[in-house]
Amino acid sequence: MKLRRKLFFVQENGKANRLGACLNFVLVMGLFVAVFWLSLGAINVHLEFGFLGRFWLRIWDGFWMTIEISAASLILSLLIGILSAAGCGSPLLFVRYFFRIYVKFIRGTPLIMQIYLFFYIVGTAWGVENRFAAGVIILSTFEGAYISEIIRGSLLSLEESQLEAARAVGFTRRQTLRYVILPQLVARTLPALTGQFASIIKDSSLLSMIAVIELTQTIREITAVNFRMFECYLLLGMLYLCLTLPISFVSKWLERRFQYEN
């Protein structure tokens, strides 16, 4: 009875017992693998990864391209997000509406539609030929709207009392910005922004639609010649996890580190 509680339930302190954690982790992973394995068996597929060796250089290039696009998009979308968050609160109506409509439109429509729209209409009209640049711009415009909301949310949650305290201790506006507003914003947005970076990496896969040769597009090209869908897409999933899992751990860690907030 006692042992069962220990192994299978969350403990009184809200955490898992170490042994229980390992056991249940293995059980869950086993379940996933079993379902997958049975499904493969049902459709008579035998996995064989050996052939991928021939393609490792292309896969590596694609993987690297995904990292480059995501990193470039992270920087650009951060700039767009900061600008937009500031713009959404602007006293100038034109600026305010511009950014608010931008955020609503982007968040309300699917990325794939935006990619087609921007690349084939806007991109063609204005002569954006470089697919890498186009991809980064489109992805950053998309993610920027989400980042804008993250930053705006934390700006709105800055309490009046903190700003008044800053005035009371005699800070100038600049000192208030530097020593109170910025650190609190960073503490509040950093965990969410890190999480957003994982989204950028996953969303960049859609750029394969306009033939940016990133990881997903590379895999698509490989499957187009040898039809080994299962092996290729399994590998694709693993490679994305290699990028996103560490990021989600960092995000969790940052969240814990800055949790004095509440």
């Binding site: 309490e159 009392s161 903190q162 008044e164 305290a165 800053a166 005035r167 009371a168 201790v169 005699g170 020593y179 109170v180 650190p183 609190q184 503490a187 004095y260 907030e261």
Partner: peptide, 17 residues
């Protein structure tokens, strides 16, 4: 002027970070 005074609020006056 404020630099020459000390102010204590009802609550939440400390910088929380």
């Amino acid at each position: 002027y404020r630099q020459g005074l000390g102010f204590v609020f009802q609550q939440g006056g400390l910088f929380r970070h």
